[in-house]
Amino acid sequence: MKSLEELKAIRERMQGQVEFRAENSDQIRVVVGMATCGIASGARPVLTTLAEEVQKRDLKNVTVTQTGCIGLCQYEPIVEVLEGGKDKITYIKMTPEKAVEVLEQHLVRGQVVEKYTLNETRL
């Protein structure tokens, strides 16, 4: 069995590096809706994929979080991208693959992936 003792070594390694996650104004928040309809339509793999990709690529300015109901059941799984001073972008009907695309285009390069966004006319 793996034991929690390994965390001690991780802590020692990490503390040498100091700034793990300085929350600042450039921080991008990525929010995944995890209400019942989100979970039913596949929000969990979208969330874990986003969290893992952000860790893997060491994107220090991106925080992945979850929320409850976003109120747009038929468009779940939904991922919102919130960035200081910019309009909120709402991505709909996400899959792990689409989420990786959003991560590469939008979160890394700053280019919104329009084809997956909820645009007003669809409402």
Binding site: I10, R13, M14
Partner: peptide, 16 residues
């Protein structure tokens, strides 16, 4: 308690 203020979301801890 073992990690102090090292976040769970940091890469190594999450992988652990």
């Amino acid at each position: 308690a073992l990690l102090g203020d090292v976040p769970f979301a940091s890469r190594e801890v999450a992988a652990f």
